Simulated scan of single mutants.
Amino acid sequence: MTLWPDPFVDLDEARRDVFRQAFASQYLSGWEPNRADVVDLLNLKRGVITRDEYLQRIRLRAQGPMTSAAG
């Protein structure tokens, strides 16, 4: 929330605290979030995207940028 405060602006303090605790727990487990991870997780919990969409986005980011084989 300190790094990317804008995705949290519409949350009340109680909801921010829930996310703060969840992110801290995951970070201690080895998760190193980026802004896209945080936004997608917030959108999942808000019901903006489905669990399947969330998992697909994570997989795509894990694969990294697509490179061209043309040469």
Rank of each mutant, 00 (worst) to 15 (best):
G71A: 08
K45N: 15
R20L: 05
D40S: 09
A24R: 14
A24W: 11
G71D: 03
I58V: 15
Y54D: 04
Q21T: 11
V39S: 02
D10V: 13
Q26A: 09
L44N: 01
W31L: 09
A22K: 14
W4K: 03
L28Q: 15
S25E: 12
V9H: 10
Q56D: 13
E32M: 11
R20A: 02
S68A: 08
G30C: 04
R46D: 10
R35D: 03
M66L: 14
V9T: 14
V39E: 04
N34F: 07
I58R: 09
F19L: 04
V38A: 08
G71Q: 13
A22S: 11
G64A: 04
L60F: 10
Y54K: 03
V18R: 00
F8E: 07
P5M: 09
E13W: 00
Q21D: 07
E32S: 10
F8T: 05
V18M: 02
G71V: 10
M1I: 12
Q56I: 12
V38H: 01
R35I: 11
L44Y: 10
A70Y: 09
T67R: 02
P7W: 02
M66P: 00
M1A: 11
V38K: 00
T50S: 15
R15Y: 06
A24L: 11
Q21H: 10
D6T: 15
P33I: 01
R57V: 01
T67W: 03
A62I: 12
Q26G: 01
P33L: 02
D10L: 13
Q56V: 10
F23C: 06
D10S: 15
A70S: 10
Q21K: 14
D17Y: 05
V38R: 10
G64K: 08
E53L: 09
D10C: 08
F8W: 04
R20Y: 12
Q56N: 12
Y27G: 07
L11R: 08
R15V: 05
M66G: 03
S29E: 02
G71L: 14
D17K: 13
R46K: 15
V39A: 05
K45H: 12
Q63H: 06
R51A: 10
T50Q: 00
A70Q: 03
V18K: 02
R20F: 11
L55D: 07
Q63F: 07
G47W: 09
R46E: 02
R59M: 06
D17A: 10
A14N: 05
T2D: 14
S25I: 11
Y54F: 15
K45G: 06
D37Y: 08
R15Q: 08
A14W: 07
R46Y: 04
L44F: 00
T50D: 03
V48D: 03
T2R: 15
P5D: 10
D40C: 06
L55S: 08
Q21E: 12
P5Y: 03
D52N: 15
Q21A: 10
P65F: 07
F23I: 08
V38S: 00
D52W: 07
V18W: 00
A36L: 13
L11T: 04
A36K: 13
R51N: 13
D12Y: 02
G64P: 01
N43T: 07
R35S: 06
Q63K: 14
D52G: 03
L60P: 07
D10W: 12
V9K: 14
T50V: 06
T50L: 06
D10T: 13
E32L: 13
V18P: 00
G30S: 00
E13T: 08
